[in-house]
Nucleic acid binder design. Structure first.
Lengths: 245, 245
DNA sequence: CGAACTGTTGAATAAGGTCAAACCAGGTGG
DNA sequence: CCACCTGGTTTGACCTTATTCAACAGTTCG
């Protein structure tokens, strides 16, 4: 019943410059995959890059939805709040991930930069005007929404039914697998989030997260390096713990 | 850590007959809203009605995805399982709700009829062939997926951060609001699911659910009528509890 | 009417939360 | 370059909530 830390700094960034899709580092990861040349041209015409500082709020729940976009650089946390400050983190977004929603009137979550961030923003006013000319874009959005839905449901299973240890193991494997699928070298994970954010993602307290990290370390499964890196020594064992098998 | 009850009966129904969209009771609720007459014709051509008995499995996680559709009659529970049998219910579907997914290779959840059920089924083999001719259908799917995603995230907040009492209050209000929005008369809710299913939806045990029902009754907020009906005496108070405000 | 579920209640237990103190890492300024 | 601060993290002692186990009561249905 303990509420989480204080809110983010609310400091709005200004648009920086238009997008150059040809140079885009995350083009093959995000919603822009599989756009035809003609579609890409239309997307580029409305896209704008925008920077956010660490700790800066990108949008707030209840705000009228004004933009969607692709994360180019940094890490964003998406979260919900209860009236008394209890926080549940819905997910951490990484470069290539889609930010925002195009079908909802207002945002349902908060989005906050937890590192310096660059977004490639599509203003909804422009996007909704040309969406019917971008069939691949909309189809890709449906695909992304379905994946996000499955991920959210997987997390419902974690939050509703897994033990603290299983939750931490599942979390570490999620980061591990995501890093591997993006071609990271094996072993050492970097965790941009702090313990409070891990706790708010796993439905636990920071103390419980800390104790469970200690236990996994004691079992020889992981080796923490400072506060923001963890080496995975025994992925198979970790998976065994996460799957409760 | 206690696993849930035994599995469902696995007994496959056979197709009954084609759909007659003009007569459809849930046409304005589901994915078929906002289809053009031409689109509706194409949808009707491939749709087939199918009945399921109470307790019958509609599809299983890991199965190759073969169909999607609209629930016409009855209640379906969607759930995930852990290896040792722990169960998390993702949601209860009611008439008008969309069943299945069209973008995923295989199902990620189990779907089971908890009452006698009728589905209007779109075989994916047909649907994917004509989907590009049904822009409104796809757009509607995106809208539904976004709503489902928001609902799942709201439930992550519940499972990760709410107390047992807040969870039950939130659950009752969800049913209450859904019934009202579909034009039900005020007050008495009918709950097609049993206590074990409520527990598996709320991430609790049946005993805790039972005790919390007792407490809300003691507070004069609700009045249970048998095991499958509850009268909401004080919706405002219930909302107050659910929102932790 | 009685068997078989399904749900309720009570007592004991355990998992995780709370509070408080100690520890450590990373940045700052002398 | 190193001592010092500061905020994040870990650890320990204790407490609360919800779970577990077990007995009992109510429903449902043949």
């Amino acid at each position: 019943m303990r509420a989480s830390s204080l809110g983010p700094q609310v400091r709005r960034s200004i648009p920086v410059n238009g997008a150059d899709c040809a140079q885009c580092q995350v083009r093959h990861l995000g919603v822009c995959t599989a756009l035809s040349p003609k579609e890409l041209e239309k997307v580029q015409a409305m896209a704008v890059h925008r920077d956010y500082a660490e700790g800066e709020l990108i949008y707030a729940a209840e705000d009228l939805a004004a933009m969607a976009g692709t994360l180019i650089r940094g890490t964003v946390k998406i979260y919900k709040l209860l009236a008394d400050g209890r926080q549940q983190i819905i997910g951490f977004l990484q470069p290539g991930d889609f930010v925002g929603s195009i079908t909802q009137e207002s945002y349902r979550c908060f989005a906050e930069a937890i590192t310096p961030v660059t977004l490639c923003v599509f203003p909804l006013s422009s996007l909704n005007r040309v969406l019917h000319e971008l069939p691949n874009f909309e189809h890709q959005l449906l695909k992304i929404a379905s994946q996000d839905l499955d991920q959210a449901q997987e997390w419902m299973l974690l939050l509703g039914r897994k033990t603290a240890q299983e939750r931490l193991a599942t979390f570490l494997l999620l980061i591990y697998d995501k890093a591997k699928s993006r071609g990271a070298e094996e072993g050492v994970l970097s965790l941009p989030m702090n313990r409070a954010e891990i706790a708010d993602y796993l439905g636990l307290t920071i103390e419980t997260v800390s104790r469970q990290v200690g236990k996994l370390k004691g079992m020889g499964v992981i080796q923490p390096i400072g506060n923001h890196q963890i080496e995975i020594l025994d992925p198979a064992h970790l998976r065994h713990i996460a799957e409760a098998s």
